[in-house]
């Protein structure tokens, strides 16, 4: 099962508001609730406290930049499941089906699954599932429903539960739009900066929290407690026109950030309108003399099923 530790009060969490919707369809009622002040968040979504599912990306065989497969095509869904632990072994079970048309609630199947994929033996590889879209698929989208388990197999015959000894267990879902119209945003060429310096995509090889001051890989060093701007600027091609015919309005990109330590002032930012980059305030964690490696996961979503992610790291060291 999921094990998480409660993060102590922090400067960031103390200033985060508890904001709830004023909508829908109720006139300005609930204002007091919406502005109830700065309750302490119960968990920080920008901090990786335990193994956690952060994203899933669809890639079409032969066209990996495309986020939406068409009928008859082979597609693969790759899951991003980082952990603060050095070694993580994951198992999974997935069912793939035509998705029921629903405006709310957990995605579900309109028909029995046409593919069930199980990886019973926990492994270091990231979970993934490949399937061929049925030629006669009638729904506008597919649903990938499953469970990801750490150090344990899925429960026998189930795609919703793990064996009881699982260290981490999480049900997951993904709705995959069908068609050929949308591509994944590409963060390969994105510029990621911390303060004035670029963060290299080179992998330092160490696990989060490990010493990093003597890393053989060149890595950005940040003093514990220092506050800097973390920014990501995708290549202009990362945002597609919403309507290819006129090309005037580009799809917005929602950027999510998660750090293995330290603080991020927000877990999400948007690149929309004429903006070309997103940024967030980062505060480095405390660190011993030999440093503390901090990993960052940056995920971009185009709200139409397109996803990409990139990882960076820095060394918090006095």
């Amino acid at each position: 099962m999921t094990h998480r530790t409660h993060r102590p009060h922090s400067a960031r969490s103390a200033r985060r508001p508890r904001a709830r919707a004023l909508l829908p369809l109720v006139a300005l009622a609930g204002l007091g609730t919406a502005l109830a002040g700065c309750d302490e968040p119960l968990a920080d979504p920008a901090l990786l406290e335990d193994t956690r599912v952060l994203a899933a990306r669809v890639e079409v065989d032969g066209a990996p930049g495309r986020a939406s497969p068409a009928a008859g095509e082979l597609a693969t869904v790759r899951w991003l499941v980082p952990s603060p632990r050095a070694e993580v072994r994951l198992a999974h079970a997935f069912a793939v089906c035509e998705a029921a048309d629903a405006a709310a609630g957990v995605p579900s199947c309109a028909k029995p699954p046409f593919a069930v994929v199980r990886a019973e033996l926990p492994a270091a590889d990231a979970p993934s599932v490949s399937f061929r879209v049925p030629d006669d698929a009638q729904a506008g989208s597919l649903a990938v429903l499953g469970v990801i388990c750490e150090d344990a197999p899925p429960a026998p015959g189930s795609t919703e539960a793990c064996a009881p000894e699982a260290r981490f267990a999480q049900r997951v879902s993904l709705v995959v739009p069908l068609g050929t119209g949308n591509g994944n945003p590409d963060l390969t060429a994105a510029a990621v900066t911390l303060g004035a310096d670029a963060l290299s995509p080179a992998d330092p090889g160490a696990a989060p929290g490990e010493a990093c001051a003597q890393s053989p890989v060149e890595i950005r060093r940040v003093r514990p407690g220092a506050t800097l701007r973390l920014a990501v600027e995708p290549a202009p091609s990362a945002r597609e026109p919403i309507d290819p015919a006129d090309g005037a309005e580009l799809e917005p990109l929602r950027v999510s950030w998660v750090a293995s330590a330290g603080e991020l002032a927000s877990s999400v930012a948007w690149i929309e309108g004429s903006a070309t980059a997103a940024d967030v305030e980062l505060t480095a964690p405390s660190a011993p003399a030999d440093g503390r490696l901090v990993r960052l996961w940056i995920v971009a979503r185009d709200s139409r099923g397109g996803v990409d992610w990139t990882t960076r790291a820095y060394c918090a060291a006095p």
């Binding site: 999480q170 049900r171 997951v172 993904l174």
Partner: peptide
């Protein structure tokens, strides 16, 4: 009673 992580929306859906 539980959650499903919805990777399409990056949200946890309660069960």
């Amino acid at each position: 009673r539980g959650t499903v992580y919805d990777a399409s929306l990056d949200l946890y859906r309660p069960v």
